[in-house]
Computed example of a mutant assay.
Amino acid sequence: MTAGIDTPDRRGRTGLDRHGRDLTGNPRVRVQDVQVLSCDWYVLRRTTFDYQHSDGHWSREQRETYDRGDGATVLLYDEQRRTVLLTRQFRLPAYVNGHPDGMLLETAAGLLDGDDPEGAIRREAAEETGHTIGRVQHVFDVFMSPGSVTERLHFFAAPYRSSPAAPHTAGLAEEGEDITVVELGFAAALDMVRGGAIADAKTIMLLQWAALDGPFRPTGPTPQGG
């Protein structure tokens, strides 16, 4: 008996080896086998499949996929003051891969954990920044690392109001979170992207969206082509 397959793993899941076996959307892909390599918390699978190449021939391939569920992230902004609200927290994978101290500046984010994307990002904004947000704008949905990670990340933006009572630290202690809330001028945040001080992909994407199409986009007349 194998945990996560025949018997519940520590998160109560079974049948994890059946995920992805019945895919039919692409006739050039025929899934042959799915093996669970690890399900300690998230799920690492090895999938064997036949793939038809553009010239018509078939080859047998194997890929490992890491399934941590889908997530959501939100850029909190103050349009009038031209500021954004970010978080700073320790990220071990970045630290072991060359980041000087592993302390990354990021937009608030988290896994859906059974909630719809908007509900999840409201929860995460409150937990990670101490702010209860009002209206939210859906920006786009993105596969962040499609070569190996199944996660689809839902991007949002929402206004916030600065308050002297707002916390400077946040996060759930029971989940090991130790988060510093950081308010930055929008221009300074873009400069930090250019200089490498902000190196988190989702944060860079939302800041670029805010500059091009979002609350800080240029407001002058659009140039006319001649």
Score class of each variant (00 low, 15 high):
Leu153Ile: 10
Pro215His: 06
Gly56Ala: 04
Leu105Glu: 09
Gly147Trp: 06
Glu151His: 07
Phe49Asp: 11
Gln62His: 13
Leu85Trp: 09
Ile204Phe: 10
Ala126Leu: 08
Thr219Arg: 12
Ala173Arg: 14
Tyr77Asp: 05
Met103Glu: 13
Gly15Val: 05
Ala125Trp: 00
Arg88Met: 01
Trp41Ser: 15
Phe186His: 11
Leu75Val: 03
Val142His: 14
Ala170Trp: 01
Leu172Ser: 15
Pro218Arg: 12
Leu190Trp: 09
Phe216Arg: 08
Thr169Met: 08
Gly134Asn: 06
Thr150Cys: 10
Leu105Gly: 05
Asp113Glu: 14
Phe90Glu: 09
Arg46Met: 07
Gly226Trp: 02
Phe140Met: 14
Pro218Trp: 06
Ala94Cys: 06
Gly4Trp: 01
Tyr42Asp: 15
Gly56Ser: 07
His131Glu: 12
Cys39Thr: 13
Phe49Thr: 07
Leu172Tyr: 14
Thr7Asp: 12
Pro100Ile: 00
Leu85Tyr: 11
Ala158Met: 00
Glu174Ala: 15
Leu76Asn: 05
His131Asn: 12
Ile121Gly: 07
Gln52Arg: 15
Arg88Lys: 08
Asp50His: 13
Asp70Ala: 01
Ala72Asn: 11
Leu112Trp: 07
Val182Met: 02
Tyr66Ser: 10
Val142Arg: 14
Arg217Cys: 05
Ser163Gly: 04
Leu206Ser: 14
Gly195Leu: 02
Phe155Arg: 06
Ala197Tyr: 13
Pro117Tyr: 03
Ala199Tyr: 04
Thr169Gly: 10
Ser145Leu: 13
Glu79Gln: 13
Val36Ser: 01
Asp113Gly: 07
Thr87Gly: 11
Ala188Asn: 09
Ala189Trp: 06
Pro27Gly: 05
Gln208Tyr: 13
Val31Leu: 05
Val182Pro: 03
Val139Asp: 11
Lys202Ser: 15
Ala165Val: 14
Thr129Lys: 07
Gly69Leu: 05
Thr132Ser: 15
Gly56Leu: 00
Asn26Ser: 09
Glu175Trp: 14
His19Met: 08
Ser148Gln: 13
Ile133Pro: 07
Cys39Val: 09
Val96Leu: 10
Glu118Thr: 08
Pro117Leu: 00
His19Gly: 05
Phe49Tyr: 15
Phe156Asn: 10
Pro146His: 02
Gly147Cys: 08
Asp116Met: 06
His168Asn: 13
Arg21Lys: 11
Gly176Leu: 03
Trp41Leu: 12
Gly176Tyr: 07
Ala158Ser: 11
Arg135Asp: 15
Ala187Met: 03
His138Phe: 11
Pro100Leu: 01
